[in-house]
Amino acid sequence: MEMIQIVGLGLMATVLILVVREQKPMFAFLLAAFTGIFIFLYLIGKIEIVITVLEDLANRSGIPSIYLKTILKIIGIAYIAEFGAQIVRDAGQEGIASKIEFAGKVFILVMAVPIISVIVETVIGLLPDGS
């Protein structure tokens, strides 16, 4: 049922945007942006259920909470970057959209830095002292 609502909202917004675009491209963009924000916020609430399942899984097994925290941060960064990039892309600014996606990728990679450093340290510790 909710799926139908969302699709209906999207169709309506699309038709309205098509009508308005000829006269006022500015309002067409605003309409698109707000529709996007609405659907996004609506779905963020649904994603919470999935995240709860993930947390439950992590708690039940013994994996450290820092893993889950990092993974959730990655998901969050990915979603926000994607969302922003698409709105900007709708407005026709392909360049800025790809920069936003690039920023998201960089932040995800930065998340990996502590893990990589730990692994590298371990590997170096494994090697015998070259004397």
Binding site: Y67, I75, A78, A112, I119
Partner: peptide
Amino acid sequence: AMQRYARLVVGLF
């Protein structure tokens, strides 16, 4: 696009 990067981090985990 994001999947590649996230896969790296998760793979490290």
